[in-house]
């Protein structure tokens, strides 16, 4: 599934600029522990988290994630947004809690893989 379909389906707010919304999402991963994400996510996964600091961008870049969804109305720090734009990492935000986001992604056919 393309990122653009997820953005539309979940009414996500796209925060980073100049990103490719036509990228394929391979699956999803939800965690707020960075070591857990870096070790257990898969390339092309969409990552759901409430962490908003800039180090999430390094994790996404190192593991070539397709995007990050910030939940619970959390917004990226200014530094995080700057880094996302530099690295071309797609940063999205939603007012919904992680449980709802994950449930809706599952309904769209996204799995942990």
């Amino acid at each position: 599934m393309k990122i653009s379909e997820i953005v539309k389906g979940l009414s996500l707010e796209v925060k980073s600029a100049n990103v490719n919304l036509e990228k394929e999402v391979t699956g999803g991963y939800v965690s707020d522990l960075l070591s857990d994400v870096i070790a257990n996510c898969k390339e092309g996964n969409i990552w759901i988290t409430l962490q908003t600091h800039q180090n999430i961008i390094a994790v996404a870049a190192l593991r070539e994630l397709s995007g990050i969804i910030l939940v619970n109305g959390k917004l990226p720090n200014a530094d995080t947004l700057k880094k996302a734009n530099e690295e071309g990492i797609l940063l999205m935000a939603s007012s919904l809690p992680a449980f709802e986001i994950v449930g809706r992604l599952y309904n769209l056919g996204i799995r942990c893989r």
């Binding site: 522990l33 960075l34 070591s35 857990d36 988290t49 962490q51 180090n55």
Partner: peptide
């Protein structure tokens, strides 16, 4: 910040 989980 999501570090310090003892997994490093």
């Amino acid at each position: 910040m999501g570090f310090g989980s003892g997994m490093g």
